[in-house]
């Protein structure tokens, strides 16, 4: 049997933009994935505060959701985002890395439904949450 998690890991680690942001896949399997992104002042949305721009947080959440879909037991292979909504709860604390966790909670033949959360080092207060739908594609 093909190891879905291994394939997904290989795919995620080959994404140029994920590498440009320094993303690291921490967990993957059974429709769940975790990705961290280290703090980088080049990703700041305001040079005065050094707070990471929401767009960079979106990029990690999107990648993490895609990884969760690919690792789902009934996923045939690839995926692409159909729609993604991000809610921004608060500014991420400058200097801290962003940790995201995504769950693919339902999957049909054509569509995968995913939820994700982004945290900094304060694990009680989310920085952002995401919910989206993704395509289900064979590789």
């Amino acid at each position: 049997m093909v190891d879905k998690a291994a394939i997904a890991r290989q795919f995620i680690e080959a994404i140029p933009h994920a590498n440009a942001l320094g993303m690291k896949l921490t967990t993957i399997g059974n429709g769940e994935a975790g990705i961290t992104m280290p703090y980088n002042k080049d990703l700041a949305g305001d040079p005065r505060t050094g707070v990471i721009h929401g767009g960079a947080v979106s990029a990690v959440l999107d990648t993490c959701c895609g990884a969760a879909v690919m690792s789902h037991p009934s996923a045939p292979g690839g995926t692409a985002t159909i729609d993604l909504r991000i809610d921004y709860m608060r500014a991420a604390t400058p200097g801290q890395s962003i940790t995201t966790h995504a769950t693919c909670y339902h999957m049909t033949r054509n569509v995968a439904f995913v939820r994700a959360t982004a945290m900094d080092e304060d694990k009680d207060r989310p920085v952002a949450t995401a919910s989206g739908s993704f395509t289900v594609e064979s590789l």
């Binding site: 994404i15 994920a18 960079a56 990029a59």
Partner: peptide
């Protein structure tokens, strides 16, 4: 560095969102 799917290739969905 904006690529999200090197097989197609396509822009990263996060880049599009950003």
């Amino acid at each position: 560095k904006l690529i999200g799917n090197p097989l197609l290739p396509a822009l990263h969905g996060g880049v599009t969102a950003a």
